[in-house]
């Protein structure tokens, strides 16, 4: 038979569990209360000591409100630093400052140039023409730190087996 909660007595509208709780409270409650009174009588609190210790502790540690203010200032300073850094890196007018900025500037200039010029229709071209076009666009758009294909080939030659031995 599944567990079912004992039904309320319709006459008294009383939960039987509450009745049992009241009985338990009547049995154990007074003892618990009396023993608690005895314990506190034996070891009473000392308000003066607590106040003096609280004063010391609060003098050492400032209230949260002040600490919150400090955090706010720190967060604002970090945000300002991050914005200034991003502007220094990416602003197109400062091209001579950083390679990233120079590359970004070139990108911006290129996009602004292509935006005004009419785009040629895409037609299939011979492979040689495509390669030439690719090399010119690579030279125009590549960032300054990117090695050209000739330089890359030179490095590949160095890695040929036997080169280190002088064979």
């Amino acid at each position: 038979m599944p567990f079912s909660k004992p039904e309320r007595d319709p006459e008294t509208e009383h939960d039987p569990l509450e009745g049992e709780l009241a009985q338990l409270e009547a049995e154990l409650g007074p003892v618990l209360t009396r023993q608690a009174d005895e314990l506190v009588e034996q070891f009473p609190p000392d308000a003066e000591r607590v106040l003096s210790r609280l004063g010391l502790a609060l003098a050492k540690e400032p209230p949260v409100r002040r600490a919150r203010g400090v955090w706010l200032w720190k967060a604002a300073a970090c945000l300002a630093f991050a914005v200034a850094g991003a502007a220094w890196l990416l602003y197109p007018g400062q091209e001579n400052r950083h390679p990233v900025a120079r590359w970004h500037g070139a990108q911006v200039q290129q996009t602004s140039g292509t935006a005004t010029a009419p785009e040629p229709a895409e037609t299939p071209e011979p492979a040689a023409k495509n390669e030439a076009a690719a090399s010119t666009t690579e030279a125009e758009t590549a960032p300054p730190w990117l090695l050209s294909s000739e330089e890359l080939e030179g490095i590949a030659d160095l890695e040929q087996p036997g080169f280190a031995l002088g064979i």
Partner: peptide, 25 residues
């Protein structure tokens, strides 16, 4: 005192309650 059973600990605990209250009223 009834929660921790030791008057010294109860003292600390009660003090800590007021400390928390004072720090963040």
């Amino acid at each position: 005192l009834l929660l921790c059973g030791d008057p010294w600990e109860a003292d600390d605990l009660a003090q800590e309650v007021f400390l928390v209250a004072a720090r963040d009223p």
